[in-house]
Design a protein around this nucleic acid. Structure first.
Lengths: 153, 153
DNA sequence: ACTACAATCTCTAGTGACTATAGGTGCAAG
DNA sequence: CTTGCACCTATAGTCACTAGAGATTGTAGT
């Protein structure tokens, strides 16, 4: 399992080639040794590390958080409080986000259900959007993440 | 209600000044007339339109979708099927997103709960992240949207 | 009319986590 | 030895803003 090309690494970890190079740029992956022709050569450790990164990304950890997790996990005898804290913080972010999206979902459902499929003149969707005194004043639950398009490329 | 400065418009709609200019750049807001000194001057229509945009963004519609909604709603006698379709598509995006995040939430909860607060050596969080054969193979539920930080600025 | 000072102007660059493209080089098989 | 894919670097684009620099305008008080 020695001297994998970046393409082989990509196939084994399901992380795309440009993404691997990107992870190197931002310091998640160390710069690997090169072949005589300056191509990257990876070993089994790189495969493990990249799998760790991929899995953490799938769980929604940000790159900065993953960097911390990798740094913290390097020392096997360190107490895992800090690791736990990162994971817990992320969990509560996700929970909060779900709550926001559920409020959105309710409002969108109301909007769509009330639409009588007539003309724009009396469309509930447009009316709702025009009526700017509508929901809780402090919530700002905007946006789907950009990554949501494309289920599998 | 005539000749509002961009700052006044901003105060009335709760949309920040640079954001108003951004909406003009990307064609959501029409370029308004200018004062002698080339400062933007807005009228009541601008206030309505910007409120519409703000509300749509709060509901998570993308700028492109809002552009469509605005175009479609310009014709009062058009049947509102297309508008309905945009809203429904967005609703199903939100619903799907919630489902993804809930799966994430479950896995994160498992991870955090199982952590015995010992050392990194036997930390469940790290173990889970290292174990790359774990969850459904097709799901890619990555990421919180960037807008999620900052509840109210 | 003059002076402060806030508000506005344009333009550029940065955010996060990639993805896409262009134009060039390396490497292995036939 | 040549074909052709894999690889290289570097740059720009995505989305919806946000932040900053540096210049100009509007306005309130004197």
């Amino acid at each position: 399992m020695r001297d994998l090309s970046i393409g082989e690494l990509s196939r084994r970890t399901k992380v795309k080639v440009p993404t691997v190079r990107y992870y190197e740029d931002v310091g998640l992956m160390p710069a690997p040794p090169r072949s005589e022709g300056k191509q990257r050569r990876y070993d089994a450790d790189a495969v493990s590390r990249l799998n760790f990164i991929r899995h953490a990304r799938e769980l929604g950890f940000e790159v900065n958080a993953i960097r911390e997790l990798l740094d913290l996990s390097a020392d096997r005898y360190r107490p895992c409080e800090e690791i736990d804290a990162i994971a817990s913080r992320h969990l509560s972010d996700v929970t909060r986000r779900i709550a926001q999206l559920q409020m959105l979902e309710k409002e969108l459902q109301r909007m769509v259900q009330q639409c009588g499929h007539g003309s724009v003149e009396d469309c509930r969707v447009i009316e709702t959007l025009n009526d700017h005194a509508h929901c809780s004043p402090n919530a700002h639950p905007i946006g789907l993440s950009p990554r949501d398009r494309a289920g599998s490329p």
